[in-house]
């Protein structure tokens, strides 16, 4: 990567991130986040506050680490049998680029399927990535997942949209 990422490099990054999730390469996936990075799945449409309004997920790297370790733990009965997931994305669109601050925002509509045993559930989401470069590599500062039905009564989502 040159000094600033091209739009195509931003797009490739977001597409690859989903692939790591589909392949459950979760250590590689976690390494995509900055040390202060967050994964946010709001519970309200257009939610602006992750602290005083609850969310489906608002997780820092420590909580994501716990989640990933749990998924592979022997005592994790809700992963016996294991869940699988599949991301079907539109091409990410680069909504903002600030080469000075090396800060970029992409917007990616997607369908997400999670399956476990005989059950399969389809979710639709708009996913916003806030990316920065750290030592020349793109990293996720914030991944925001807005489910189309974020405020509906949902069943378990055990993996990552």
């Amino acid at each position: 990567m040159g000094t600033v990422p091209t739009d195509q490099q931003l797009i490739d990054f977001v597409v690859r991130e989903a692939r790591l999730l589909d392949q459950q390469r979760l250590e590689d996936w976690l390494n995509l986040f900055t040390e202060d990075g967050h994964y946010w799945m709001p519970v309200e449409r257009g939610q602006t506050d992750p602290k005083l309004t609850t969310s489906l997920m608002y997780e820092d790297k420590l909580l994501l680490r716990i989640r990933i370790d749990r998924l592979k733990g022997k005592a994790t009965h809700s992963q016996s049998p294991k869940s699988r997931c599949h991301h079907m994305m539109q091409t990410p669109q680069v909504d903002e680029r600030d080469d000075g601050q090396q800060h970029y925002v992409t917007w990616t509509p997607m369908h997400y399927v999670e399956s476990r045993a005989d059950e399969q559930t389809l979710y639709a989401a708009w996913v916003t990535h806030h990316l920065i470069t750290v030592d020349g590599a793109l990293k996720i500062r914030l991944k925001r997942v807005d489910l189309i039905n974020c405020d509906a009564a949902l069943g378990s989502i055990q993996l990552f949209v």
């Binding site: 799945m41 602290k51 609850t54 969310s55 489906l56 989640r67 994790t76 809700s78 378990s156």
Partner: peptide, 17 residues
Amino acid sequence: VMYNRLVNAPTSIVGHD
């Protein structure tokens, strides 16, 4: 609200257990 999402959400690992 943190307790609520960590323990009671459809995405909660305690809830999944």
